[in-house]
Each structure stands twice: as structure tokens, then as C-alpha cells.
Amino acid sequence: MDAIVDLGATRAHRVDPELPILVSGLNHWFGTGEARKQALFDIDLTIDRGQLVILMGPSGSGKTTLLTLIGCLRDVQAGSVSLLGQELNDASEAVLVRQRRRLGFIFQLHNLHESLTAMQNVRMGLEVHGKIASSSWRPAAEHILSLLGLEDRLDYLPANLSGGQKQRVAIARALVGNPDIVFADEPTAALDAESGRHVVEMLKLLGRERGTTTLMVTHDNRILDLADRIVQMQDGRIVEDQMT
């Protein structure tokens, strides 16, 4: 079942003009001068549409750095990151903004706005796509929040929600805009086994039905069986890449 993919192999299927993720020769450094430290070494990674890919590795291995580089949250220093057919190295702020709007982000910390209710936080995920009539955002936000089991917490402020509930609101905010790619950094860390699995199953279902691609950093062994592919990182390098 498990096929180990040759890391350096040329990919025959570079035909999709909007291939979700195509990384080649990516290097990244933090700090300047003496303190400059390389965090990523020659990363090559291609992810196809609709896949659910899990990125694993010990802490400090560069998983989150890679995720934020691909997700337009950090400037690419060296090498190439192509996101949905758009090169990110040297991309203008306008291009970055356009690409970010096609992504859904689930952050390690939920990063909800504490002054906004669950509904309003989800609305922020929709409003970025332009002015929407106040009538049309409500059903969409309500629907996604009920899918995540928060139908009776719609007007709660984050301070009045449990950690798991907050994380689910953040997931709803990421998914409500119908993103092409979902980036998730430890999305299940704050959730119990059952709801963690439920969320990942939702992401997998989105991949199957809408072709949404998911790249997820996780330590959670309970959900590995749902991945289409598991990429292992260590010390800034990809050391293992297996299809499940």
C-alpha cells in the first residue's frame, strides 16, 4: 500500500495550470548576520488537487515555516513556491492578497477576534471576498457553524467559548469562503478525539466533493489514517514522503 515517492523524481503531471502547490529548491533563513540560521534546505514538494496531505516532524523541523511560506504569510527568500499557478517569490502585495483570499487558514492558536461573536468571526472569512448583502452572509455562516456543532453558540464571544469551540469557530472561518486550499497548523490540538476526527473527515469530504486541497501540520496520530499522503520533515529537510 505505502508507496515511497522518490523525492527528486520529475513529475509527469505538471499539466494542471492551477496545480495547488508546487515547491522547488526552497531554502529559508531566519535572523541576520551571525545569528542567521537556515530553517529550510532545498525543499521540493508537489501537491495535487483534492489531496489531504499531513506534514509531520519533530518541533523545530521547519513544518510551520514551510506552511507559512506556501500560505503567503512569509516572503519567499530563495527558491520557488508556486501556489495555484502563481509564483510567490517576488510577488507583489496585490498578488499575495489575491492568493490569500483563495486560501483557508486554521492557525495553531485559534486567532479569533475577541471582540467579535462566533458569527461575526465567520463573517470576516466571507467579507474578505467583497461587500455582501447582510442577508446572504448569515445563512452561510450559520450553516458552517452548525456543521461544526456550534448552532447554539452563534452569538457567543470567544471568551465565553471553550478551547475546542473556539478552534471550531476558527475552522468555520477558514472554510466558509470555500477556499481552494486549506492550511492547517495543529487544527485538532484543542479538540477531543471525536471532534478532531470529525473536523478532518470534513476536510477530506471537501477534498472529494469540491476538490479542496488540504495541507495540515499535526502531531495527532489519531487522524493519520485519513491522510492521502504523509510528508515527514526533520531539520529543515523532507525525509520521507509516503502515499497512504
Partner: peptide, 14 residues
């Protein structure tokens, strides 16, 4: 700033 950064990550402009 943290909340604004989150909005920026989602795709909001300056």
C-alpha cells in the same frame, strides 16, 4: 496587532 495580522493572513488589505 495579532488580530489584524490574522485578518491580513486571510486576505484583507492594508
Amino acid at each position: 496587532l495579532k488580530e489584524y495580522a490574522t485578518f491580513k493572513a486571510i486576505g484583507y488589505r492594508q
